[in-house]
Simulated scan of single mutants.
Amino acid sequence: MDSDVILSVPFMHPDAQRLVEEVQAEYVVRYGGRDNTPIDPQAFEPPDGLFLVAYRDGVPVATGAWRRRDDVEVFGTRRTAEIKRMYVTPQARGTGLARRMLARLEDTAADVGSEAMVLETGTAQPEAMALYESSGYARIESFGHYRWSPSNRCYAKRIARISSP
Rank of each mutant, 00 (worst) to 15 (best):
M1K: 12
D2I: 07
D2F: 02
I6A: 05
S8P: 09
P10R: 10
H13C: 05
L19T: 09
L19D: 04
E21R: 13
E21K: 14
E21I: 14
E22M: 15
Q24A: 12
V28E: 13
V29R: 14
G32Y: 09
R34N: 10
T37R: 01
I39N: 03
Q42S: 14
D48V: 05
G49C: 02
F51Q: 02
F51P: 02
V53P: 00
A54N: 02
D57E: 14
V59L: 08
V59A: 10
V61Q: 00
R67Y: 04
R67D: 02
R69E: 13
R69Y: 01
F75S: 11
T80W: 01
T89R: 07
P90A: 06
P90M: 06
G94E: 08
L97V: 10
L97A: 06
R99T: 13
R104A: 13
L105S: 01
L105Y: 03
E106W: 02
D107H: 08
S114V: 03
M117R: 04
M117D: 02
V118M: 07
G122S: 10
Q125L: 14
P126C: 07
P126D: 11
A128C: 07
Y132Q: 03
E133R: 15
E133A: 15
A138C: 04
A138Q: 11
R139L: 14
I140D: 04
E141L: 13
S142E: 07
G144F: 15
Y146K: 03
P150M: 03
R153F: 09
K157P: 06
K157V: 10
R161P: 00
S163C: 10
P165L: 15
P165T: 13
